[in-house]
Design a protein around this nucleic acid. Sequence first.
DNA 1: CATTAATAATGAGGCATACTCAGTGACTAT
DNA 2: ATAGTCACTGAGTATGCCTCATTATTAATG
Lengths: 223, 223
Amino acid sequence: MGDTQRQRLEAREEAILAAAASLFSESGVDGTRMAEIARKADVAEGTVYLYYKNKHELLEAVVDRFWRELTKGAKAAVTSNAPLSQQLTELASYHLHSLIDDFKIVEITSRARQRHGEPGRQLPQIREYVRVFDLIMQRGIASGELEASTPVWQMRDVFYGTLEHSARTLVLREQPFDGSVIDNLLSLFDGYRLKHYPTKQDSGSKQAALELLQQLESEISRW
Amino acid sequence: MGDTQRQRLEAREEAILAAAASLFSESGVDGTRMAEIARKADVAEGTVYLYYKNKHELLEAVVDRFWRELTKGAKAAVTSNAPLSQQLTELASYHLHSLIDDFKIVEITSRARQRHGEPGRQLPQIREYVRVFDLIMQRGIASGELEASTPVWQMRDVFYGTLEHSARTLVLREQPFDGSVIDNLLSLFDGYRLKHYPTKQDSGSKQAALELLQQLESEISRW
DNA sequence: CATTAATAATGAGGCATACTCAGTGACTAT
DNA sequence: ATAGTCACTGAGTATGCCTCATTATTAATG
């Protein structure tokens, strides 16, 4: 049956990819020989080249798959219709954990971007991953929880960039994870939150109004 | 004269470094052959190895020098005793411009960090560069312009990480520079600013006090 | 200035390794 | 059973990093 045949091929391709991912991650790209990958995947060296044109394409495939898997997880963290702040927290936590766990692959990513020929490209799967972050910002704007005056991509860059850099800081310090990074980021993000002063139509907000008034009074009373 | 001799050696070392920097930056590390570097530096291939043990050490030297130069510029941008927000703006602008201009080297940096043997190290000159950012945050805290409850490194990660990621976004979009990124970041940073309510001793602040009161009134009047 | 010693530079060749390809096997269809 | 197609193999080739015996240059010495 041709179906089993196709499955065998896909299994081989997967075995090669997995072997490469694990070895690249462990010993780096330069520290990994093609012969090793072949041996670990249990194929002859030449066979690798039937599935991937060269070492660089194999690297690209490894990196691309990593971000594809990450995208799945990120989408899952965001799918619920919980309040914005909670979704941001979940996404941030997932993101930070992942970057820390697979830091080696994250670093290797920039190398996959550089195709020997020329200009720095964005790999499609990374683009896709970043879109998840954009999506959540857009939803926040649509629901009125985030102000619309700041471009989505700038809010996203703050969110994404901060976490990426924090991951680097933590890894280089050999601290595994620190949730306070996320708390900090989220409290900063309040700067993007719309301040809702209750309106007259808003009948259920009497309580909120009183709290706000109290806060103002307390601030005034300080001088 | 032994002095001229030493100068000639240093000039050669510099020529090799410059050749490597320019070629790495143009064609990437893998796209650059040692023979090319030698030719561009006008020495024999073997001579390169009298100054740098191997290609990877040469790469490290190139990257390290880049960040060392950057540190100089950053320190200059911060040396004045202007108000915090202005210094942050200058540093951010310098940082963003530099990362965009030499994006290729920035990307190559992560590769220099990975020594074939083992774990991701932080190159000393990058550490030094990041310290400039820490310094400015610390000053802000010392002068009471920034709150002290958030760890310095977290504020720095927000600042640094956001700009680094923004640089990537801009470069991949082939937009050269966008100052609004900096405005956005700085207005967000207001979240770290201490709110100064004027005190009774603070005789010169009558004006500020009135403005604050007016703002409160306007906010209250909205409902 | 001649001679010797020390230091720097050279580039042909060694060597590791990414990649190729002619040959072999395995599976399918008739 | 036979021919034809497709996947696989691994010895061999090409490339590019790096070494090292040799040569050139500078410094030291009498």
